[in-house]
Nucleic acid binder design. Structure first.
Lengths: 218, 218, 218, 218
DNA sequence: AATGAATGAGCGTTCATTCAT
DNA sequence: CATGAATGAACGCTCATTCAT
């Protein structure tokens, strides 16, 4: 787990770049600025990253991997597609809340960059996102969710809402308490896709289960 | 309705800029490129728009106004908050589908630009978005929607999902048939917020109403 | 003496230009600025003056002529080269003091412009300056001044000192009381060139004569 | 005394800029021209000087310092305020004659630039000029000069005349033999301020002393 | 491996000037 | 005659990137 010298320098550059990009904007930020802040020469940055955009694209690699690994780990422990979806939403939002600079870079400079699509970092993200689709598919198979729902749409609703909320948050500082929206969000979606034929009860009855998940995420 | 010569030139610049920004990206695009494409001198562009970014920020003004005016008009004709929400989603997506370059500029270069927030154009957009909140509030008041829903969240779900879908569409070309997602999207959300105490029936029963609205939107 | 409409417009442009050039600097000033201030269109300025620099070069024409005409008039009334030189210095400094914007333009933007040398305006100035040389030559001929002085040098001392003082004044505001330096300046120079062989007395003894000249200049 | 590589480059830029500004004029000259002439990239110029005007303002720093240091050195060796003033005039004119490009830049583009007043280079010049005032004050104290002369005026006469002569020279090429005006200039001024009460003799009797100073300045 | 120094390449922007009305 | 509108022609300046040490 210990990083060698090179990895440490690389990490320092990425962390500094994340911070500088988030605060000043990608285009406004300069390599010289990042170098100065990281106390590393500009030339050295180019030892590790081939271009300024390459540096930007390297930012999500690790953080995303960590998030999606954590996600995979938890999903195994949780029963039921609905509960799993809730965990996913929670983990996403929690991760962004804890890394606001990273969230800003992701939401403002990566998610809308066509060149990012062909990137290592984006592939990792796509893989992570597939976990959502898988959970939805699972929910349909087990009869938890309606048969006729469109998994791509549901996934887009989840991601889109999160992105919208987090983007608003990094841009304006609102809403201050992102986490408070997790339960209502997931409730609304689950209720919209819940298969009442198999289970006429309401999703909200299963809250206790969710609470446990929630507390285990500390 | 007829535009004078200056207004025509201004419009031509905005239209060309929209196209060029959409195709080449805001930073990659140059004023010289826009000028050449619009067959207008670079200097003339600066007669009308003080900076390149100012030109970018001027793009949404008119289109947005048109969209939100149309929206206000239709909302008056439609009964029921649920039906109104559906119309809103339809109008948004339809408008983006018909103006892909504008959609691209909005989704990729405006929505994530902090400086845009202080802009005339953004104020117009904010006013338009308030219409959504108003409809949701209305739905709660009339008992159509549950009492305990968070209007900000519901609005964010609607906008976030649309943004996510449209962004994907302008970036990758998928999904090709955005419109097909309108019904399922609105169904899912309405079902999530439908007040079953007052109306145990399902939203989906009201489809015929929606269909009419839909066809009237041509 | 009455000016026709065209001459009035021309004069207004020149006066405004003098003011704007003095306050903002020749290069920093724009034609648009002058046009706005003079409430005349930019294009109209080009009706009267072929280029921005041409406008600058047109500024001294009239003022200089007036100054040198006044000078010629007074010189005829005054007896003695020394007294005449004093009158000259007085008239120069007085004229600059009364037209600070003109003085600034002359000292800061005309006197050091090589292109100005070939100009109508400069020819007028040269003619005016010749009056100084003529007075010095006269003083030598009449035996008032030493035989071996260099008229070009004496003229340069007079002009150079005035230019230096006035330049300082327009740039910094000091010295506030330019007029107070007229007497000491002329005293020092005259004493330096006074022919003591013919008149062992001192120039300063002739003060009463100067005083009269001075009061006649009101 | 040996300059490192960077200092050499900086010096090369300043020298080239001095030449180009002198020959083409400050506004007409372009950075690209200077870069080409100095065989250094335009960007490199901006490594050392933040703006074109900053480059202009950096020109006098060194040359002025050298002149004023030389001046201070010689003034210590020379007896008598009058002799000292002569040395000062000589050193000024000699320095300009040997560096005509520098003289041109100083006379045409620096001395009349308000922004230059706040500059490092101007502060050095002011300090140098104070030496003149000091010598004049000294002359008054020792009784060499009259008690009632205005040191500021005398200093202005010396500087003004030099500036006028040098400006004429750099603009038109005349007078070709500036040095020949040194003696008459200083004679005239000294005679104008010489205290005949203490020393009824004439300044011109002291010529032999001056001659020695003069020859030591080669 | 690390960096100080150097630069190529380009772009937004400004105005003096012109022209059609 | 007067001008609103249009533009040609430059130029200063910035950085991402490279190179020599």
């Amino acid at each position: 787990m210990s990083l060698n010298k090179i990895e440490i320098r690389k990490k320092k550059i990425i962390n500094t770049a994340t911070k500088v990009f988030a605060q000043r904007g990608f285009n406004e930020a300069t390599i010289s600025e990042i170098a100065k802040e990281a106390k590393i020469s500009e030339a050295s940055i180019y030892e590790y990253f081939s271009t300024k955009e390459g540096l930007l694209f390297s930012i999500p690699a690790e953080s995303s991997q960590t998030l999606f690994d954590t996600m995979a780990f938890h999903l195994k422990l949780i029963q039921g597609a609905a509960n799993k979806l809730r965990a996913i939403v929670f983990l996403f939002i929690d991760s962004y809340r804890k890394n606001p600079d990273f969230a800003a870079v992701l939401m403002l400079y990566l998610k809308h960059n066509k060149k990012f699509l062909d990137t290592e970092g984006h592939i990792a993200i796509k893989a992570g996102i597939k976990q959502i689709t898988r959970v939805i598919d699972q929910g349909i198979e087990t009869g938890e969710f309606k048969e006729d729902i469109n998994p791509y749409l549901i996934r887009s609703m989840i991601l889109g809402t999160i992105e919208h909320l987090v983007t608003n948050w990094v841009m304006t500082g609102n809403p201050e308490n992102l986490e408070e929206l997790i339960d209502p969000l997931i409730d609304t979606i689950i209720q919209g896709i819940w298969n009442t034929k198999n289970d006429p009860g309401h999703w909200s009855l299963q809250r206790p289960v969710k609470r446990q998940v929630s507390s285990s995420e500390k």
